[in-house]
């Protein structure tokens, strides 16, 4: 798998969405201006091949899109708790299989059973508290697409560090103190961990590269088994970037190799996606991390003379991961 005949045609997608009468999530949801979580949801919906049911882990996206009696969701949507979205999806998926097998609601004009299941979870709900439930669901092989919107900290509770917070970053639980400036350790290599489950399809996407993202989401829908997609998701409240720069930063993250774009098929076939492949083939295109770091005030302390070593360290860590990735995709000796 992981091949798709589908080519995103934005004109065609717009027409289809217009005919369907909805885009999955309405404008007017309460996500912060500048947050790209909503953009990621939109891109998933644009790539849908049939009706979608959404399971949402507790987090910004859940809280900001639903405050009773309002909801921004135009698709069936369910939220249970922080750490169990993948387990909930397992139950939905098996129930759907059973009800379709039994033809239970066949002929009922009020019920549609043919749908794809998407899970949205933040990094807290995925890297940390929800990792066990996710790992179990992947091992069992349920068919659903887990989309991680990775904004690198517990933003919903007010910017606490997570397993995804990068080295050096300020958060409210890793303050830029005089003795310990920011987070002392790097990120958990989550995509490696997920890929090691040998599931059919794993990918990373950045909303700036919408075309690449849409194709990957579509592959995810078409895959025969569990799919995991990690989406780069800026958070101007937690990163202290300019809200209007969110998409530009989504591009910079890829250009600096802080967030390379790639896919992993069946856990073993690693492939770079075009934007990152271009850098691999032409290394002078790789921008220094400093350009990325300076767009966000969470890294501001790293620019003080006594902390400049942190930028160097950050660059080394990014380089190390990038080289590792090049090895995996077979582009390094």
């Amino acid at each position: 798998m992981a091949e798709t005949k589908w080519v995103p045609n934005i004109r065609q997608i717009a027409k289809e969405m217009h005919e369907r009468g909805f885009t999955g999530i309405t404008p007017g949801h309460r996500l912060c201006a500048g947050c790209v979580a909503g953009t990621i949801v939109r891109q998933v919906m644009m790539a849908a091949r049939k009706p979608v049911v959404v399971i949402n882990a507790t987090g910004c996206l859940e809280v900001a899109t639903t405050i009773f009696p309002y909801t921004a969701w135009q698709v069936p949507w369910a939220h249970n708790a922080f750490e169990n979205a993948a387990a909930v999806a397992s139950g939905v998926e098996r129930a759907q299989a059973k009800l379709i097998r039994d033809k239970r609601f066949e002929g009922d004009p009020d019920i549609e059973m043919d749908y794809d299941i998407v899970v949205f979870g933040g990094d807290g709900g995925t890297y940390d508290i929800g990792l066990q439930a996710l790992s179990g669901a992947l091992e069992r092989g349920h068919k659903f697409m887990y989309v991680l919107y990775d904004n690198e900290a517990y933003m919903n509770t007010g910017i606490q560090r997570s397993g995804s917070t990068p080295f050096g970053a300020w958060t409210t639980t890793t303050p830029a103190g005089k003795v310990i400036p920011g987070k002392p350790v790097g990120k958990k290599p989550l995509v490696d961990i997920i890929a090691a489950h040998r599931i059919p399809y794993v990918a990373t996407v950045s909303p700036y590269y919408w075309n690449d993202a849409l194709v990957k989401f579509r592959k995810g829908f078409e895959a025969d088994g569990p799919v995991f997609i990690r989406a780069f998701s800026t958070c101007n409240r937690g990163w202290y970037n300019a809200p209007e720069e969110s998409i530009a930063i989504s591009r910079l993250a890829v250009e600096t190799c802080v967030f390379p774009l790639y896919e992993v098929v069946n856990g073993v076939e690693w492939r770079l996606s075009p934007p990152s492949l271009a850098i691999a083939k032409n290394p002078q295109k790789k921008k220094p991390v400093e350009e990325y770091l300076k767009t966000q005030r969470r890294f501001r302390h790293m620019f003080k003379p006594e902390n400049r070593w942190m930028i160097k360290r950050f660059q080394e860590m990014v380089d190390y991961e990038w080289e590792l990735l090049l090895e995996r995709v077979g582009l390094k000796g």
């Binding site: 999806a89 939905v92 098996r94 129930a95």
Partner: peptide
């Protein structure tokens, strides 16, 4: 569904239940 914990056992049961 032979889940990996009781927490997931009840979570999956809930998922199945709300799916009808």
């Amino acid at each position: 569904i032979r889940v990996e914990s009781e927490h997931s056992a009840l979570s999956a049961s809930w998922g199945a239940s709300i799916a009808g």
